[in-house]
Design a protein around this nucleic acid. Sequence first.
DNA 1: TGCGAAGCTGAAGACTGGCTGAAAATATAG
DNA 2: CTATATTTTCAGCCAGTCTTCAGCTTCGCA
Lengths: 225, 225
Amino acid sequence: MRILYVEDEIRLAEAVTYLLKKADIAVDHTTSGSEGLDWALHGTYDCLVLDIMLPEVSGLEILRALREQGNTTPVIMLSALSQVDDKVKALEAGADDYLAKPFKTAELIARIKALCRRPPLQAERLLTFADLCYDADNRTVNGVTLTAKEAELLEHFLRHPDQTQSKAHLLAYVWGSETPAPDNYVEVYISYLRKKLRAAGSAVQIRAVRGLGYKLIWEQDAAAD
Amino acid sequence: MRILYVEDEIRLAEAVTYLLKKADIAVDHTTSGSEGLDWALHGTYDCLVLDIMLPEVSGLEILRALREQGNTTPVIMLSALSQVDDKVKALEAGADDYLAKPFKTAELIARIKALCRRPPLQAERLLTFADLCYDADNRTVNGVTLTAKEAELLEHFLRHPDQTQSKAHLLAYVWGSETPAPDNYVEVYISYLRKKLRAAGSAVQIRAVRGLGYKLIWEQDAAAD
DNA sequence: TGCGAAGCTGAAGACTGGCTGAAAATATAG
DNA sequence: CTATATTTTCAGCCAGTCTTCAGCTTCGCA
């Protein structure tokens, strides 16, 4: 698997490149937007990772130019601004995925692999966290199939990473705010989900915060970042 | 799902209310800004829809008053002026979304549902003091998890930095002024907290002021033992 | 210097909130 | 209509938290 990585922050680029290579992903890296566009047009990549903020030619411009040429290579945009605005612009311009800096390299890897594995079509049906990759179309996490409720629950966690979710919230989200469902439903399904995550061989765990709710955590000596 | 809708154009309000109810959203409607603020403060709503232009108390004023009270209910602002200006003001005042008139009710419904699904996105509640950083959402200080009581105690110190807190005061805050809890509770939990702060490797200490209470101090020279 | 009050802390026990296996109900597939 | 998968319900267990207590240390004052 070969990707093109356009990023002007040298230090970051070197670190990320190193980790990607370790994950068996061949990387062509350049700091220049125009060079990046050139390589993207003339090389063959399984995926492009473009920083938005670049001197000269921005990541967005590269993306637009490519799509104009009919190039459909999967593209992940990076941006220091975690503003919705950037994300929207990126997706509108034809990006397949978007990642806000700072990010864990493991996450970037998960997304790259996800994008390459999948043939065409828009992203967003894919959600990732650490070494997890949830596929909403098939309702699977790292290959393990989830039931409808399990999936909704996990999806909620993935859409709000690093946030503690109260039982009441999860209940409202998964079962609807009107149901007379007891908190115990959530507990039961958290239990199911944990089993599935274990089965998926993920290092991600669901931690209970007594009295507050649950959150996803990644038990790992993250050398990445 | 129940929302509060403050809108002075009767005809519009009636039409919108009708459609919202059809979409299974319970609506409390008022034409008065002051009444709206009152209801918002004393009722429980999943979402507020406020027109900006109102006689007397404007939607913006309602919003600001609410946020000042620490109320974090999702708010959608409506405005006849589709000027960027209004939108910016609304968002700055703490609105979660903005919709320009005229709008399709379907869009309003979609946005209400979206906001209600989302957990209260309040910027992570962080409190700091010297080298301490307390995360109220996860109930952790510098990574160390606190229990409920420990957390409330620390929170009180952090909200009143450099002030000596009497035991009676802390007792009332954490255990409620009605409980027959003895002063010793505070001592016990101060002890626990100290242990946690040490574990967190912080240079902040809780100093007892004999006869008065406790206060936080930063022993800059005291290496973490 | 010695005494009492104030403060500290370890530990035992009570009390939850949270976890999970299993059974019952329900939906879905075959 | 039967078989299977999923969801709902229940109940007991467990671990983390809170209370309570007792003995110890520290401090201020006579």
